[in-house]
């Protein structure tokens, strides 16, 4: 391991809405070490997609970053001008979305689109096309050369997601952001895409930020996990640590809720009572305290510190003893 590809420090941002500001991300500190797959897991409203868009600097106009830095390639992405950011997107940072149809242009052939995204390269058109075919081949597209002239609608959903991944990787980015890339797919296809990403990672020595609400998918592919709850990182650490020794009550509850992890069939599944908090008014204490089954008085009054649990495992909870390792 040799440093961090992505290094987010103390990132906070809010959205202006007609009903007042929504503090969507608060003091996010996380990193993607070079060559590792880092999972970001969270439920709806946790801010995981906002985080991805913040890294890409593709946030909607009503978003304001109020603090922090997004370190990438030695600089801070937040200080780059729009021109420099455009040069980065697709070249050094690429993103794949949940629905490949939204990122593929329906009226251009996939070959044209894959040549288009190499527009900054100096290679000849034939060379670019060859590169496009090679990228398609790498994602398991059979008969890649002849597929270049087909249009997105002529492919199935699984194949389209492979094409989207090929397009993202054609410029060999240093960081790939995968936002819910398997969510819209059937289970057998999801397994194939996860396997593909694992293969590609060896291929390109790429670092991947893998965003998902699906604990199973995270467990299958990631090296490290960041657990996001209501705009805060509540716990992060190596995958095995998080799944086998979760320290934060939210992480524990989330893992306990996954029906795939409950081995005996039951009609009474565990749930997390209560609702996600309203991020217009963020309370003083722990953000999870109103739903926490083990909360103590301190949790409502005082913001919990990040407690080190050893081996790069950190949980933001009063109940984790200090100096554990």
């Amino acid at each position: 391991m040799n440093g961090k590809v992505l290094d987010i420090r103390d990132l906070s941002l809010r959205f202006a809405t007609s009903a007042g500001p929504v503090h969507a991300l608060r003091n996010i500190t996380m990193a993607v070490p070079s060559g590792e797959i880092v999972g970001v897991v969270g439920e709806s409203g946790s801010g995981k997609s906002t985080l991805a868009l913040a890294v890409m600097r593709l946030l909607p106009g009503n978003a304001t970053v109020t603090s922090g830095a997004i370190g990438f390639g030695g600089g801070d992405l937040l200080t780059l001008d729009e021109e420099a950011m455009r040069a980065l997107r697709g070249n050094r940072i690429a993103m794949v979305f949940q629905d490949p149809m939204t990122s593929l242009n329906p009226v251009r052939s996939i070959g044209q689109q894959m040549v288009d995204i190499q527009h900054r390269g100096r290679a000849s058109p034939a060379e670019k096309r060859r590169k496009a075919a090679a990228a398609l081949k790498r994602v398991g597209m059979p008969d890649a050369e002849s597929q270049l002239d087909r249009h997105p609608f002529q492919f199935s959903g699984g194949m389209r997601q492979r094409i989207a991944i090929a397009m993202a990787l054609v410029q060999r980015p240093e960081l790939l952001i995968a936002d819910e890339v398997t969510t819209a797919l059937d289970v057998t296809l999801e397994a194939q895409i996860i396997h593909l990403l694992r293969e590609l990672r060896a291929d390109i020595d790429g670092s991947i930020l893998f965003i998902s609400h699906n604990l199973g998918a995270i467990a299958e592919i990631c090296d490290r996990v960041v657990v996001l709850y209501a705009g805060e990182v509540v716990e992060h650490g190596p995958i095995a640590e998080i799944f086998s020794h979760p320290q934060h009550p939210y992480t524990r509850a989330l893992i306990a809720c996954d029906p795939a992890r409950i081995s005996t069939a039951t009609r009474e599944l565990p749930v997390i009572p209560g609702d996600v908090p309203n991020l217009r008014h963020v309370a003083d204490g722990c953000i999870f305290q109103p739903r926490c089954s083990v909360a103590i008085a301190k949790c409502a009054a005082e913001r919990p510190p990040d407690r080190d649990c050893g081996a790069g495992h950190v949980a933001r909870c009063h109940l984790v003893p200090e100096g554990l390792p």
Partner: peptide, 13 residues
């Protein structure tokens, strides 16, 4: 089905 236990990953699809 994805295995929600990182210790028991499948080798391939």
């Amino acid at each position: 089905q994805p295995n929600p236990d990182p210790a028991h990953r499948r080798s391939g699809p």
